[in-house]
Design a protein around this nucleic acid. Structure first.
Lengths: 208, 208, 208, 208
DNA sequence: CATGAATGAGACTTCATTCAT
DNA sequence: TATGAATGAAGTCTCATTCAT
C-alpha cells in the first residue's frame, strides 16, 4: 500500500519509512554545512525536516548516530562515484584517469563540505566516527591508484624508480598531495583545477 | 619578540601579567589537544592554569577570543621558524630549502595539533577565527616559496613553463600539495618524510 | 468475578479480550517487579505482552489505570487466599489460624513484590491508587482477625483486658506488628518464620 | 568574614556555603514529601530554594546525589536522637526504654515521611541509595535493643527462653513488629501509641 | 480491534559568562 | 587584580499518549 501510494503520488511528503530517514539526513547535512555540527541542535534538525523532535529518535538513537549515518551515506556515494569514474575513463591516459578518480573521491566531499566554513569539523567527526567504513574506502582507493600506476609503468609512461620510489609509495605520495587541495582550495572549480595541476606535476615528476 | 619585551620590562608586575597570559594559553592549548575544543570548558582551563574561572575573563573576553589569541601566538611562532629556516638553508639547493620552509610552516602546527585526535577541530576553528592573522602568514609564505622558485628558475634548475605553469602557480601547487600531508599523515617522522617526497616529485616535475 | 463472567460468556471474542487483558497485566507485573514502575515504559509492557503500544490503550486508558487494575487483581487474589485459609484452618488453634490468615494476606504481596528491589515503589503506588479497593480488603481482614480473637477470648485462651486492651485494639496491634515483616524481611521463608514469631509472642502477651 | 557575618546577621539568606546546602535539602525534602520524588524536578527544587537551576549542581552533582545527601542527613539525625533517648531513659524500665529507643529511630522518619503519601517512595529510594550509611544505623540499633533485653533478662524481668527464642531473636522480632507501625499508621500520635502497644504486648509475651 | 509512527512537554545536565566581594 | 558562587539559556534525550490507517 505504502509503496504503491508513494509510487502513484508525486509528493515526497507522502513517502514513508526510508524516505523520511533520507529527509532527515538531508536536513541535517544542510544545517551542518551552514551552522556546523556543534551549533546545530536536534531541535533545529527536526524543524528543518518538518518533524517533531522526538521523531528524530525513531530514526537515529542519538545525534552521534545520526552523524554516523550521514558519513556512511557519504562513503557509499563516493564509492559509487569512483566506480563510475573508472568505467568512464577506461580508455583515457594516466593523467586523465587519475584526475577522474581523485575527482570522484574528493569532489563529492568537497562539494558538500568545503562549501562551508564548517567543513573540517564535519570531516573530522567523520574520521572519528566512521573509521571502519571509510577505512575500507581509503584502502580501496589506494588499490585503484596503485593499479593505474602499475599499468602506466608497464607501458613505460612512468618510472617510479627514476624518482627513487616504489609504485605504491608514489601512489601514496600523489594521494597525499592531492588531499591538500581539499582543505586549501575552497572554490569548486579552482579545486578541480588544483587537483589536475598537482597530478600533472607529479606524473611529470614520475617520467622516466 | 614577546619574550624579549617581557625581558626588557623591569616591572615585575607587568611580567607577571604577561606570564599569566602565556600560562593560560599553554594550559588551554594542552587541554584542547587532549580533549578537543568543545569538551574543554573554561573551568578546565582555569583549573589547569591554577587560577580562578573569573580571572580568565580578565585576560580574554571570551572563550572564542582566547582561541584567537592561541592562534595568533601559533602564527607568530611559525613566522619565526620560517625566518630561521630561510637563514639556516640559505646555501642549500632548491629542494632542501623548500623542505626546510615547509617544515617550518607545517611542522609546528603538526606537532602541536596532529598529535591529537582533535587536531582538525582546532585547525578548523583557527581558520574561522584567524582569517586576518594567518592570512598574512600565508601570503608571506607564498612570497617566500615564489622567491625560491624564481631563483632556481633563474639558475635553470627548473622550468615552470615546461610544466605549463607560471612560477607563482607552481608555487601554489606545491604548497597545496604539501598541505595534504598535514591532514593525511599522523606520525611525525612520516609527516616530514611525506613532505620531502612530495617536494621531491614536484620539483622533479618542474625540471626543464 | 471477572473470570466467572468470561467463563459464562460463550463468545470466544469476549474471552480473547479478557485473556489479553490478563496477558498485559501479567507482563506489566513482571516488568514492574524487575525494573520498577518508573523505568518500565508502556513500550516495554507492550513488547512483553507482544502487542502494539497503541493496543494497550484499548484496554487501559493510562499507565496509572493499568496500575490500578493490577492492584485490584492483587486484592481479589488476596481475598480468595484469605477465604481458603479460614476454611483450611477452621479447626486449628488460635495461633495457627492467625498465622494462616496473615500468610494469606501478606504472602501473596510479599511473593510478588518483596522478591524485587522495587517492591516498595510498587506498594507505594498501590496505596495511592487503590485506596478504595484495598481499603475494603483491610476492613474485611480486620473483622476476620477480631473474630478469631473474640472466639479465643470466649474460650479463655486469651484475655485482652489483662494486657490492657480491647479485643479489637489487640487485633489491630497484632496486625500492625505483622505488617512489619513485610517491609523488613526480604527472604520468603524468613518472612513466614517472622510472621509466626511475631504472632507467637503477641498471643503469648495476650494470655490471661 | 562569612562566618562572622552570618553570626551577626539574623537573616538566613545572608548565610553561605553549608547553609545553602541545607536550604536546598530542606526545600527538596519538603517537595519530595508533597509531590514525591519522581514528580519533583530539579527545577522545582531550585525554585523552592530560590536559586537558579544550575546552582543546584554546585552543591549536588545529580538528583540522585541530592537524594543520597538527604538520606545521610536523616541517618545522622536519627543516630543523634537514639543517643539522646538512651541517656534520657537510662533509669526507666525496659518497656519505657524500648519505647524511647524506637520512637527515636522511627519517629524522625515517620514525622518527615509518613506525613505524606509519598513516604514509601522516599524510604524505598533511601534503602537503595544509602545501604552503607543506614546499614550501620540498623546494626547499631539492633545492638542497642539486644543490650536492653539482655539487661532485663539478667534481672529476671523477661525470659526469652520461655517464649522459645534467643534474646537476639526476640529483639529482632520486636524490631520487625514495631516497624509495622511505620507503614501502617499514618497519624503521628497514633503512631507513637501503636509503637507503645506493640512493645507492651511483646514484652508481656516475653515474661517468664 | 490492532497498529506503530508521530508528537511534544518535560526531565536532567552543562557551561560560558557575570558580578559582588 | 583576583575570586568563585551564581546564573539561565540551551542541549540531548525519554516517554505517555494520540490518531490515521
Amino acid at each position: 500500500m505504502e509503496t504503491i501510494q508513494s509510487t502513484t503520488s508525486s509528493k515526497p511528503a507522502a513517502r514513508t519509512g526510508g524516505d523520511k530517514r533520507e529527509l532527515i539526513l538531508d536536513a541535517a547535512l544542510e544545517l551542518f554545512r551552514v551552522r556546523g555540527f556543534r551549533r546545530t541542535s536536534m531541535e533545529d534538525i527536526a524543524e528543518a525536516a518538518e518533524i517533531a523532535k522526538g521523531t528524530l529518535y525513531l530514526y537515529f538513537r542519538s545525534k552521534e548516530e545520526l552523524f554516523a549515518a550521514l558519513s556512511q551515506r557519504l562513503g557509499e556515494r563516493i564509492l559509487e562515484a569512483m566506480d563510475q569514474a573508472k568505467i568512464a575513463t577506461a580508455s583515457a591516459d594516466l593523467e586523465e584517469r587519475l584526475v577522474a578518480l581523485f575527482n570522484a573521491k574528493l569532489g563529492f566531499a568537497h562539494h558538500l563540505l568545503n562549501s562551508s566554513p564548517h567543513a573540517i569539523e564535519l570531516i573530522g567527526s567523520n574520521q572519528r566516527i566512521c573509521e571502519g567504513r571509510l577505512g575500507t574506502l581509503d584502502e580501496r582507493f589506494r588499490d585503484d591508484v596503485a593499479e593505474l600506476l602499475t599499468e602506466a609503468s608497464g607501458q613505460g609512461q612512468i618510472s617510479a624508480k627514476a624518482a627513487g620510489q616504489s609504485l605504491v609509495t608514489a601512489g601514496d605520495v600523489i594521494s597525499t598531495a592531492v588531499h591538500g587541495a581539499m582543505s586549501k582550495v575552497a572554490d569548486e572549480s579552482e579545486f578541480y583545477k588544483s587537483i589536475r595541476e598537482i597530478i600533472h606535476l607529479m606524473v611529470r615528476g614520475l617520467r622516466p
